[in-house]
Design a protein around this nucleic acid. Sequence first.
DNA 1: CAAATTGGTGTGTGCGCACACACTGATAAA
DNA 2: TTTATCAGTGTGTGCGCACACACCAATTTG
Lengths: 366, 366
Amino acid sequence: MSGKSVRIKDIAQKAGVSTGTVDRVIHNRGKVAEDVREKVLKIIEEMNYEPNLIARALGANKTYSLGALIPDPQADSYWLEPRAGVEKAEKALKHYGVAVKKYLFDPYDVASFQAQALALLAGAHDGVVISPVFYRESLPYFEALQQAGTPFVIFNSQISEYTPLSYIGSDLYTSGLLAGKLFHYGLPAPCTLLVAHIDERAANASHLGKKEKGFRNYFVQHHLEEQYPIVAAELDRSNMAAFIGQLDSLIEDNPRLGGIFVTTSKAYSIASYMEQRRIKHIRLIGYDLLPQNLHYLQQEQIQFLINQGPFGQGYWSVYYLAEHVILGKEIPLMKYMPLDIVTRENVNYYLPEHDEKPLLEHKVSL
Amino acid sequence: MSGKSVRIKDIAQKAGVSTGTVDRVIHNRGKVAEDVREKVLKIIEEMNYEPNLIARALGANKTYSLGALIPDPQADSYWLEPRAGVEKAEKALKHYGVAVKKYLFDPYDVASFQAQALALLAGAHDGVVISPVFYRESLPYFEALQQAGTPFVIFNSQISEYTPLSYIGSDLYTSGLLAGKLFHYGLPAPCTLLVAHIDERAANASHLGKKEKGFRNYFVQHHLEEQYPIVAAELDRSNMAAFIGQLDSLIEDNPRLGGIFVTTSKAYSIASYMEQRRIKHIRLIGYDLLPQNLHYLQQEQIQFLINQGPFGQGYWSVYYLAEHVILGKEIPLMKYMPLDIVTRENVNYYLPEHDEKPLLEHKVSL
DNA sequence: CAAATTGGTGTGTGCGCACACACTGATAAA
DNA sequence: TTTATCAGTGTGTGCGCACACACCAATTTG
């Protein structure tokens, strides 16, 4: 906090050596006499030297190439946000010599994923971020990356076979707990609850499973299992008639149904069903601020949406990767985004405003 | 996104002039022939030139001094967060030549405020951020700042007499609405609700008033006034016996009391009371993640805390001010922080982690 | 004992920009 | 005509750092 920053030059002077030598000890490159090294290190400590990362970025004049393998928002608009986050980080890091190449794949088409993953490998990047929507199919590519020594960051879906530099995503289990809490808070017992997994294939099963487990455990922890019986169902909208039929019978079979917890971002599909059937008394909680979900949140057909910070996921993935690649910094093995509880009343503060374009780089320093 | 950035040199070359001339048109300083100016401007447009703000910060080598007039966290720990935000921004901006001087005053002592405000004025800063806890008493200082042409940003409390460069805070009215929603969602009618204003002096009345208004309006908008009668009370903990007596009689007088909305950060004081009296059925919603509040949130004595992003308030105030002072950028007249709904289940994601120290400056550019 | 090697160190240049300064040619004042 | 004036422009230096290179002395090699 004391006025002027200390420069490499200052410590060189104080140590009675040249800036070159100081540079060598800072980056431990080249040869430096042991006693000199220690002396310089000590002075760096004493003077509380912090490199001017701005100048560093200028001087280094290196370029880094990163790759981002993520789903194409055209296929599923959920991915608009992560992509925007990636692009924001890209922009922020541009003048640090970082370029990010995006490889977009169709999240409903394995072949597309594989093709793009191959392209990513061929890109020979200094680091990559990946959203491994296809769990099993992505494993060989992680193997290849590991072989090549390319650092990778994973976001949105976790993977246990390979340890990435970092996982950025949300705590699925806790989000389930949270949904449980919200129902418990809002619904007097006894009351049946439905966990609906909509439109997700087996590849993502662990995803949804974790959410369901958290949800169930909320009631177990509070010894409420009997007052809040839970029913789970997998629904598929590929056949809309069947989808509606399933819902009809679920409602018929569970007269005390008080709430539906949708573990995917498709809560709107149930909201739409309920709107048509003029059902008002069933509470609905889902994930993600998709336009369709927002519509029903406004209508109060959906009570709460849990926001997993999709924008932040994209942003931090790239940002952390860059920090590691450029600065060799140790980055957190895992970063969970906040689980925002979004309602009609506070939704405005969570909607993206990517057009805002801060001018001063901030948050601390390159 | 195309590989290399275009430099001032590139556009100079393309325009057939020197970099000096380009520099002149960019900063419109000095004399430039009109036709040349236009030509350069056109090329800047065409080549989509974006100044390398990193290099700019280095080259400019200016220093800016900002002042921050904020309450002393020692007197009220709420202010730990805003101060941390200010300090984080300070750190982030340090290498851009920005220094922030803090003037801390005791938020319960007008004289202390006035003394620090005078010191702030004497500091002759390039810009200041102020949290005008003492509404009336702060007015003359805003007048003085305006006279001196010093830009100022206000945060946490709004002021209508003078227009600051920007107001950073939260939308108090909406936060009241939100609290209303949460009670309505969780409490079956009929049910009496208490709005408790604790430990705040008249100076801040508008604050609390806005929250109460939002709260009441939630029920008006939903035509629920009769099912959810609302009682308001001002409580003062300076005399604890009286405080407890007031609560006792409020509870006695309102047998259907189902929820208490505390408009200040002192929800813990009621939680503590309820704990002593072994009252469990009354729902409690308050503001701010103070340690004491967190304690009772864990105990589930408090159901929800509304978080107003105090850290972000401090951070963005300084950050925006710097953007304006350094770059002359137009900054938003008003920035509301998100109103986070915090429960026992998701509280971890909202607790501060200021120790993390990003290395790459980000978010976009100086 | 000269030449080659190697540990250890200093110097110089460039990154993209800001800014002070020097310079040119034309016009106005002397 | 000479000199001052000034609109308009180019050049050079420095910001703090990274990095290539040059350099010197103490060794080692032949």
